[in-house]
Each structure stands twice: as C-alpha cells, then as structure tokens.
Amino acid sequence: MKKRVTLTFPRQVVQMPVTYRLAKDFNVAANIIRAQVAPNQVGKLVVELSGDIDQLEAALDWLGQQGIEIGLTSREITIDEESCVHCGLCTGVCPTQALTLDKHTWLLNFARSRCIVCEQCIPTCPVVAISTQF
C-alpha cells in the first residue's frame, strides 16, 4: 500500500540517512515529493511511502521513535480564483479527477476530498494559478 506523509526532522536528526533506513530495514520505498533539508536546521520531507502494510506501520513507528514528527495530512492544493482562466489543462493530468470542468458553465471545479496532492497540476497550469506550500 501507499501512504503520503510529511516528515518534520528535528535539527539533530537531519544527518540520518532516513530513506536508506526505510528501504533497508523495512523494505519501504520512499518517493520524495518535496524536500527542504539543510545542515543544522529543521528539515521537512513530503514522501510517498510504499510497501507492505505491516512494514509501513513498523516504519512509521520507528520514525516516531527517532523524534521525527509525522504529519499524515500534507498541505492542500489551492486555486487562485483571480488568476485561473478555466482553460482546464490541469484536468487532463489530475489522476483522481479532483479537477474537472463543469459541463454547462465550463468553470473549473476542484473536489478537495478527492485530491491526493500529487501536485502534477501545479507545473501544468499555464497561468500559475495552482499552488501548495510547506
């Protein structure tokens, strides 16, 4: 199974090769979606973890023991209504159809509950109307 988490590293843990340990000790693949890591600073990592369900749970427990804060809800996608031109280009790359066009008005609809924050829409938008922040 897959799980998307936001990991916040205290300063002293930034040196630890976390994705290596996840792979070696738990056979969990960590696909890094976003990262902000610098020496001696609090680091942030948005990762999609995939692996066996029990090993995933064990990996998350282990991460917690290292003092790494685990956020299961990463930041949400925001659409700037002032900027959006409703071209709909984003609807073609959205894997869950959270972004759709209304068939009558052709306005862009965003169903937040369906969004998995894969962020493929962000670079697709030609007018930079879609964003997410750490």
Binding site: V85, H86, C87, G88, L89, C90, T91, G92, V93, T100, L101, T105, W106, L107, L108
Partner: peptide, 21 residues
Amino acid sequence: SGRITVDGRPVRTAPLASLHL
C-alpha cells in the same frame, strides 16, 4: 465529453482553450 478512444483505448481529454471565457 472528456474521453476519446485512441488506438482502441479510452484516453482522457482536456481543453487548452478556456471554453468558459
């Protein structure tokens, strides 16, 4: 309609022109 068939496979469509505007 949001879907066409290409090479026998369903493919999602998206416009680039803003139909609304």
